[in-house]
Write a protein that binds this DNA or RNA. Structure first.
Length: 152
DNA sequence: GCCAACGTTGGC
DNA sequence: GCCAACGTTGGC
């Protein structure tokens, strides 16, 4: 899952009292569908910092609730407001993410690009702009080994 | 800040 | 249903 660290970083998540956040604001159908259809409570998440210097994977988190209606789409005062989403017929959904773990070492994008085991990984593809992307177990394990997360 | 890549919108 | 125009993403 991608987030711009200037907006919401892994450290921001770690700093929340609940260490949990609703992944609000996704306004792309494919990304939404991943959350609604593909994610389950307990799934591990690679927390990717996009538009960063450098961009890359900062650590891990975990899906802690199934997808529910993203009410920011219904709130005219929200920057994520979407008039086409209504409470009777909501268009946007999101999961909540918690249990953040910061990697001992940040894994930058250029390191992902040169790793043979990650050659097929979607996040390194040019023009791949989806804010939520699937990763295979092999890719996940490879990246965790690179980041060597400190476990609670 | 540039701009390539891509998704979405809306006229037809 | 096509596709040009537009807006956004995100690496660099």
């Amino acid at each position: 899952m991608k987030s711009e660290p200037d907006v919401f970083s892994l450290n921001d998540l770690i700093g929340l009292p609940s260490q949990t956040t609703f992944w609000e604001g996704v306004r792309n159908y494919q990304a939404r569908n991943f959350m609604v259809n593909e994610m389950a409570v307990g799934d591990q998440v690679l927390f990717y910092h996009s538009n960063a210097n450098p961009s890359g994977i900062a650590g891990l988190a975990e899906v802690v609730t199934p997808a529910t209606v993203d009410i920011t789409a219904l709130d005219p005062s929200s920057k994520y407001f979407d008039a086409r989403s209504t409470s009777a017929n909501p268009r946007w959904y999101a999961v909540s993410v918690g249990n953040p773990v910061r990697f001992a070492r940040f894994v930058p994008l250029n390191e992902l690009k040169i790793n043979r085991a990650l050659r097929e990984m979607l996040v390194i593809r040019k023009g791949q702009r989806l804010s939520i992307l699937p990763a295979s177990l092999q890719e996940f394990s490879t990246i965790v080994a690179l980041g060597n997360p400190l476990r609670g």
